[in-house]
Computed example of a mutant assay.
Amino acid sequence: MSTFQLTRTLPDDAMAAALRADVMHGLTRTPKELPPKWFYDARGSELFEEITRLPEYYPTRAEREILVARSARIAAETGARTLVELGSGSSEKTRHILDALTELHSYVPVDVSESALTGAAEALLAERPELHVHALIADFTRSLTLPETPGPRLVAFLGGTIGNLLPGERQAFLRSVRAMLSPGDALLLGTDLVKEEAVLVAAYDDAAGVTAEFNRNVLAVINRELGADFPLDDFAHVALWNAEEEWIEMRLRARDAVTVKIRELDLVVSFVAGEEIRTEVSAKFRQEGVRAELAEAGLKMSEWWTDAAGRFALSLSTAV
Rank of each mutant, 00 (worst) to 15 (best):
A273L: 04
L27R: 03
A207F: 12
R251H: 09
L232Q: 11
A100W: 04
A16R: 06
A203Y: 03
L154T: 08
M180E: 12
P150N: 13
S143P: 15
E65D: 07
K261E: 15
L314C: 00
V177K: 09
E197F: 02
A295H: 13
G310V: 11
A295V: 15
L54S: 07
S270R: 03
E85K: 10
F285D: 03
V272A: 12
R81H: 02
D233M: 02
T279K: 00
E148Y: 10
I66M: 13
T52I: 15
D307L: 00
M24C: 05
K32S: 07
F214G: 06
E225Q: 02
L219P: 11
T306H: 00
A295M: 08
S90G: 01
N242M: 02
T259R: 07
I137Q: 02
F214K: 08
V199W: 10
Y57A: 13
V221I: 09
T82R: 04
A16E: 05
K93Y: 14
G26E: 01
L316H: 07
L117N: 04
T118C: 01
D234N: 12
S315D: 10
L174V: 14
D22M: 03
I248C: 01
L193E: 09
E249R: 06
L27T: 06
D256S: 12
R70V: 14
G227I: 12
G168N: 11
L83S: 06
A18S: 02
I74V: 10
F285T: 12
A292Q: 13
G44H: 11
I51E: 08
I277M: 00
T306D: 09
P36A: 04
G274V: 01
S45F: 07
L27F: 04
E197D: 08
R311P: 06
A42Q: 05
D111M: 02
A156M: 14
T259A: 10
T78C: 00
R153L: 03
E50A: 15
W241K: 09
S270T: 06
T94W: 03
L267M: 07
R286C: 13
R178M: 14
L187K: 04
P109V: 15
F214H: 09
L19E: 01
D111F: 08
L101G: 13
E169C: 14
A42P: 07
S2F: 05
L125G: 03
L101K: 08
A156C: 14
E275T: 09
L47F: 08
